[in-house]
């Protein structure tokens, strides 16, 4: 574990700030570059960093896959829900102007804020899900093929894999 010391300590320091940066990008999409999508990716990157350093199991303990898969759907539902709300309020689909019956411009603001939030939620959740799936796949196959030797050995020996790789491209 000792060789992970340096990344681990600094990741501890940085992860809250990375997550905050993601949220900053989320809510400042109106004013500068950024928005829900970018924010979702950055936020997910923070979680992925945690998973990379502390291991998938621990990350799953913190942000459970069940919760993430709910968020995946919830983000899309929030976005589409705003559209349905505008429909019910008598506007066209996604016409945020009707969200505020007095001031359409404010309604637009509100609509954009909510849907960007939905975008960010779905994107972050999807990115985390995809990472969980990719990173957790080896475990699924390992359990099923525990008799299949050639899968197992690579992960356990530290020297062999990298040696073959580090030796050069050709």
């Amino acid at each position: 574990m000792i060789e992970h010391l340096v990344p681990r300590v600094l990741a501890k320091l940085l992860i809250p700030f990375i997550l905050l940066f993601g949220l900053y990008v989320q809510f400042h999409g109106d004013f500068g570059p950024g928005g829900g999508f970018q924010a979702g990716v950055i936020f997910a990157a923070g979680i992925i960093l945690y998973a990379l350093i502390y291991g998938l199991d621990q990350a799953r303990g913190v942000i459970s896959p069940g919760l993430v898969s709910v968020l995946v759907a919830l983000g899309l539902l929030i976005y589409a829900g705003v559209g349905v709300a505008t429909l019910l309020l008598g506007g066209e689909f996604l016409n945020y102007g009707v969200l505020d019956s007095h001031d359409p411009v404010h309604g637009q603001h509100l609509g954009i804020l909510i849907i960007e939030f939905g975008v960010g939620m779905t994107v972050a959740a999807v990115m985390i899900t995809i990472f969980y799936q990719f990173a957790g796949r080896l475990k699924i196959t390992r359990e099923l093929e525990s008799d299949d030797d050639d899968e197992d050995e690579q992960a356990d020996d530290h020297a062999d894999g990298p040696v073959a790789d580090a030796r050069g491209p050709r």
Binding site: S69, V70, V72, A73, L74, L76, L77, A80, G81, V84
Partner: peptide, 9 residues
């Protein structure tokens, strides 16, 4: 489109 995420639940 709305039904799909609901369906996952």
């Amino acid at each position: 489109m709305v039904a799909a995420p609901i369906c996952t639940f």
